[in-house]
Write a protein that binds this DNA or RNA. Sequence first.
DNA 1: CAGTGGTCTAGACCACAGG
DNA 2: CTGTGGTCTAGACCACTGG
Lengths: 231, 231
Amino acid sequence: MLHRHNWQSVQEEVLRRINAREWKPGDQIANEADLAAELGCARTTVNRALREIAKTGLLDRRRKAGTRVAAQPIAKATFDISILRQEVERRGETYKHHLIKREVAVPPRTISSEMGLTARERLLRVRALHMANETPYALEDRWIHLDVVPDAKRQSFQEISANEWLLRQVPYTHGDIRFFAQNAGESDAELLNCPVGAALFALDRLTWNKAEAVTKVRVLFSPGYQMHAPL
Amino acid sequence: MLHRHNWQSVQEEVLRRINAREWKPGDQIANEADLAAELGCARTTVNRALREIAKTGLLDRRRKAGTRVAAQPIAKATFDISILRQEVERRGETYKHHLIKREVAVPPRTISSEMGLTARERLLRVRALHMANETPYALEDRWIHLDVVPDAKRQSFQEISANEWLLRQVPYTHGDIRFFAQNAGESDAELLNCPVGAALFALDRLTWNKAEAVTKVRVLFSPGYQMHAPL
DNA sequence: CAGTGGTCTAGACCACAGG
DNA sequence: CTGTGGTCTAGACCACTGG
């Protein structure tokens, strides 16, 4: 083994050994210094390679305990969650959106408690239908916390969708996203032009700016929608 | 601005500036050397901080062109895809699984073409029901390429599920995962103990070892299942 | 307490791509 | 051609934690 002088080739070599079962699940592998000596590079380089592998879940690293091949590999899939318009246009289709409703209202209890608000607080609700090539693509139902995003009052969300406006204009610190399946209700079915009861892919997304909830959105996708990622 | 001597605090400071719109979407920011001088640390440290931010999609970096705040932030959500047993047990529930079928058969055309096989090649098919606290959790329908995983012939998959055995024993180089929604068919409904037509969260997963397909699996989850991730 | 990973530093060279 | 990020190196100190 000679001259692994960059971290990618060190990574390749380590992955090869794991793959070939030279290092088996649960095994402790050589420490960074030894591995660096063996491969003929600096410890920093080995560190980089192993750190990146550990992030994928294939290695388990702890000070003093050393580095081990994960006994139970956990696959991590990373999905890009972009603006709906981009998603449609990247597929070479024509994007449009229609505003269905825009009102200030008191949300259901479940929403206000998720967002950490009092039960009576009024939020801006925006519903919109996103289209790809003139056919329904996704149905957006959003609640916006006006105390956090006062500018939203002055936005009609006709020219630009709430989805796009918020992502562009409003910073957030963290959030949470959930994927699930849901049967189309009557109004969903009508808007998405699909049978009542059709299985719809859905997501709920809640974003925060520090301790304050910014917006909560549910998106229902037309039947046939798939979300995919490399593994 | 003094003494940002570790990459996490450099990262915090950069994120703060983006968040506070001191650096706006599309703006080019200071180069690494200048930033290092300003913050009082080595360039390497700034590099680490910016590299990590760029991986989340919030910065766009190119040699010579410099570093810019992403004009259209793309959120990346990372999901842990673990063994079903672990998923159940982590929720504090009791896991069991039942083998429904184990046979060698010719798969449908769609499967064999996805896996890059000739239409007549025979694969091992395993269907199993995964249970949490004695109630159905997920239904697994799997095809295994026996040329790549000959050991699978000797496994009954009664003691250990195919899901777990493969992830533990069989290495793969890459794969692809898809999430979607699907209405429960009659046999799905019977096995999962849910109404026919219920919206089920589903995933298809195809894994490869270099150029050879290892296994293709479809998992249907019981109604109510959610997959979530931080953002 | 001592072994291991985590990180920082200063300096260097290189690869890429903008102008 | 030249500015920028990408990386490597040797050496150092530190933080954590297992034994």
